[in-house]
Design a protein around this nucleic acid. Structure first.
Lengths: 168, 168
DNA sequence: GGCTGATACGCTACAATATAGCGATCGAGG
DNA sequence: CCTCGATCGCTATATTGTAGCGTATCAGCC
């Protein structure tokens, strides 16, 4: 599978198209109704690789003919969350498209405080350490929130790797 | 050191007293001003081992003679966060006393969805896995948010350990 | 003691995020 | 066509968080 959602240099139009197409497939398989509204909200969430606030989505929805109010957006987001098509970033009160929606999961996010980009990772080591630690405490884990604020490779400059232009 | 903040059966009055005494010590060492208001807010945060909302604190502040408004509470909380005396639980928009405030750190929390109790852990394995994963992505980590929702030992029943009454 | 500058606080107003509830509409299946 | 449940539009309101400004308080200094 191409690394279409790496948040590095890429053709973002294709990135969005792929995400929407995958969402269509997944919903069709599950018998879930990806309505026009929900599809439009998902598209708006995928506008960039930065988490998007519900009210940002709301204001952009106003553009087309249909009217919109907060519940409209929140209900669509609730559906997308249930289907695992988007994640909620708790520390930002915002939403972002899921990088691999086929298998539902709790996301792990690297949030750059300089450029705002969110990168989803799925590190088995973190997951294993967390499950082990929870087990030691007799805790039965459900949804896990992991959000790391810091500087991404390009915003951190040459500290961790060669710098290169931000072309997103 | 006694495990005074284990969120298990314990004398919570002592628990609060210890937390306040430690806060006094820490602030004195740092030259930070733990004013009467800030001390009172910290005490209210420590009322239980469940995360407390800012407006809950606000309403309880009204009890004594002084009047209070949202900024009063948020400013006190901001101070306490800076000093590492409390943590913010992002997924609940709430606050909880820090279990080991001497060394500032990002907390790891086990949040029971049944009884509401938050347990702070400090697992080196999780931290290490996270730093390693961030490094692989060229990401320079700053503040880390780790919050696990699930069932604590007693609320999970006999699944992970012998059940016993909730006496907190 | 009295001055002074910085910090902390009280307060009003408002911004940002999220939900309750109700009626209208749509769509699949009989 | 009809019915029933899911979806949506809409108003109102709840919850969480900040801006900004004037006053009070405190530590350090003369």
């Amino acid at each position: 599978m191409p690394d279409r959602r790496s948040a590095d240099d890429h053709d973002h139009a294709t990135c969005i198209e792929d995400a929407l197409a995958e969402a269509e497939t997944i919903c069709a398989e599950r018998g879930a109704r990806l309505t026009e509204l929900r599809r439009r909200v998902l598209e708006l969430v995928w506008t960039s690789h930065e988490p998007v606030g519900a009210y940002d989505i709301l204001s952009r929805l106003g553009g087309d003919g249909r009217r919109a109010a907060p519940p409209t957006v929140y209900r669509a987001l609730e559906f997308l969350l249930e289907q695992g098509l988007v994640h909620r970033i708790e520390s930002l009160n915002a939403f972002i498209g899921c990088a691999s929606p086929k298998a539902p999961h709790s996301g792990q996010f690297l949030l750059c405080t300089a450029c705002g980009t969110a990168t989803e990772i799925a590190d088995a080591g973190i997951q294993a350490a967390l499950v082990k630690a929870a087990g030691l405490a007799g805790f039965r884990p459900g949804h896990v929130t992991i959000e790391v604020k810091g500087l991404c490779r390009r915003c951190a400059g040459g500290a961790a790797a060669e710098p290169h232009a931000h072309a997103h």
